[in-house]
């Protein structure tokens, strides 16, 4: 086992991920798309790293590779210095409890046939945590913590608004008391007023539960409010990374400069 560098909770080293695409007549040939091309990031304990880029830049692929939801060609992901690729499936499952993800679309990411209590409590069942009544109590406490009601366990997702559904997704991830949460565009589908509520909630939860965040987004205004560090991706590569303040004030790369310039409302 390697030793973890102090204060680093999650680290990706030289990740390479290829997608094969059919090409040529009758799709007999393949072309390779480099979705991740030698990507390395470091997530510090208790901090938020924003990964930004346009569609197709590879940011969501990176999120999925970090959590071992997608296999990758080469490179490694270290969680507390331990390579996740080297773990057997039982140990990986254990590690997954500490690595949670929340998705963009609060309508697509909740099973419409399951009650909220089952959705939020499913992770507890899978990881064999507590008995039924302990689980219920935990789920109810978590729902209240994210701004819903304990009674909501009996309801179905369609009975909630978009912002409330996103809160259900947050409760589902956090009920397992993870260390790292990967947020894949968690506020992009929400109205600004709801977006502001959720962003404040995320900040409060981070402090309270000592969470480290990877925050995938295309919105550079949101990044400024939530993140400590930023990694800018373009065509599968990280073109620039560093502290948010520093990069916003003096971007080194043309691409970062273009992105910052394109933010509406600066004329």
């Amino acid at each position: 086992m390697q030793t973890a560098s102090a204060g680093v909770v999650l680290e990706a080293k030289n990740l390479v991920k290829h997608y094969k695409q059919r090409a040529g007549s009758f799709g007999l040939k393949h072309t390779t798309i480099k979705a991740l091309d030698d990507v390395s990031i470091v997530l510090k304990q208790g901090s938020t790293l924003a990964v930004v880029g346009e569609s197709g830049s590879g940011k969501s692929t990176l999120a999925r590779c970090l959590l071992q939801l997608l296999p990758f060609e080469s490179g490694e992901v270290l969680f507390h210095g331990q390579s996740l690729t080297e773990l057997d499936s039982a140990s990986l499952r254990k590690a997954r409890k500490s690595l949670q993800m929340v998705f963009q679309d609060p309508f697509a990411s909740l099973n419409p046939r399951m009650r909220v209590g089952e959705i939020v409590g499913e992770g507890l069942v899978i990881h064999g945590l507590g008995n039924a009544s302990e689980r219920l109590k935990k789920v109810q406490q978590m729902l209240e913590r994210v701004g819903l009601n304990a009674d909501d366990v009996k309801k179905y997702p369609h009975q909630f608004s978009g912002g409330q559904r996103q809160r259900i997704g947050i409760a589902r991830a956090l009920v397992l008391e993870p260390e790292v949460v990967v947020w894949d565009e968690p506020v992009s589908a929400l109205d600004v007023s709801v977006q502001a509520q959720i962003l404040l909630l995320l900040k409060a939860l981070q402090k309270e539960m000592k969470l480290s965040y990877i925050f995938i987004t295309h919105d550079l205004r949101v990044v400024r409010h939530i993140a400590d560090d930023i990694a800018v991706m373009n065509k599968g590569k990280i073109v620039e990374q560093g502290m948010v303040e520093a990069i916003y004030q003096s971007p080194k790369q043309d691409y970062t400069r273009d992105l910052l310039k394109a933010i509406p409302g600066q004329k």
Binding site: V192, S193, V194, Q195, A196, Q197, L199, L200, D219, L220, R221, V222, R224, H225, V244, Y248, L260, I263, G265, Q266
Partner: peptide, 19 residues
């Protein structure tokens, strides 16, 4: 006023204030 208070600004100076 309340809606404008929810909008994150690129300067990051403003406190977000949900409605």
């Amino acid at each position: 006023k309340a809606l404008l208070d929810c909008v994150p600004d690129v300067a990051g100076k403003k406190e977000l204030n949900p409605i």
